[in-house]
Design a protein around this nucleic acid. Structure first.
Ligand SMILES: [Mn+2]
Ligand SMILES: [Mn+2]
Ligand SMILES: [Zn+2]
Ligand SMILES: [Zn+2]
Lengths: 143, 143
DNA sequence: CTACTAAATTGTAATGATTACAAATTATAA
DNA sequence: TTATAATTTGTAATCATTACAATTTAGTAG
């Protein structure tokens, strides 16, 4: 069940602890770019002793090791994502959903720009998702 | 002095008020992507009656009208930028500086993606700026 | 297996950015 | 000049995140 995540942690010389395994599993199984609260409250159910601070700490160390990434797209809270291949993101300003964008971008793999060392590249698209847009149209026609 | 900003406000059917003029001027003269606190404390010197809430309110309305944009690049606070042509940004995770990136990107002008309506596109590059990188090297050689 | 220790976890308190709200002021139009 | 809706202001509340000290534990050496 957790061998996969044990392996990841050991490969990065991180101690194998229950919170770390659970967080990794959660992010691996939920590609919804959850915030800290969503991760915490979900895991808390099965592991009542879990502390919110531990979730913050664990996410931070996983991020330092580049196992996960954090997204600043929402502007009010960090969202987390298992790091598997560079991809860009869309956020719907109406319903808040964040999803992956399958756009290739010539600047995605850049590691240098004018002498500055680039360590992360993030492409954020903000707008109204198809679902919300359709709902809005329907409301206008019926209302 | 302020005719330029008066014009912008009127064109967008916004009431012409001193805080709005001052904020516009500040952003026009400081392309450093300041946060609310920097704008507030700077303007407060000349206009002691200015309220922080007004700065928040004004920035919000200017943003709604697309006169300015907010950047979520830092992850802890919004940074503001006069909106003049799409451009991407670099943030140095060491010194915090945010500056414009002159990279053209084929996805920058996108207004649609898979049926989703795109209203904003932001490209964020995070890493270590040349200056910090050079300092770091020097410290290693001399230390 | 046991003992040790550095690292991780936990809970609580503090911080910092942003928002809510109600009272006072003011830009604009009649 | 007056009316009024919009704006500004100050304070209090909220929410995400960080600081910190006490407790627990993963990993290792014996
Ligand atoms: Mn993603
Ligand atoms: Mn800029
Ligand atoms: Zn939506
Ligand atoms: Zn720097």
């Amino acid at each position: 069940m957790y061998e996969k995540y044990v392996k990841i942690l050991k490969e990065h010389t991180l101690k194998v602890t229950s919170p770390r395994l659970e967080i990794l599993r959660y992010l691996d199984e939920h590609h919804t770019h959850p915030n800290v609260e969503e991760i915490y409250s979900s895991l808390k159910k099965k592991h009542p002793s879990l502390s919110r601070t531990t979730v913050y700490n664990s996410l931070e160390i996983l991020k330092k090791k580049r196992i996960i990434q954090s997204l600043t797209i929402s502007g009010s809270e960090l969202r987390y994502d298992i790091h598997e291949g560079l991809h860009h993101h869309f956020i719907c300003t109406h319903c808040g959903t964040i999803f992956d964008i399958a756009i290739t971008c010539p600047n995605m793999d850049r590691t240098l720009y004018g002498g500055h060392r680039v360590e992360e590249v993030q492409g954020y698209f903000k707008g109204i998702c198809k679902k919300c847009h359709t709902k809005e149209k329907r409301r206008n026609n019926n209302g």
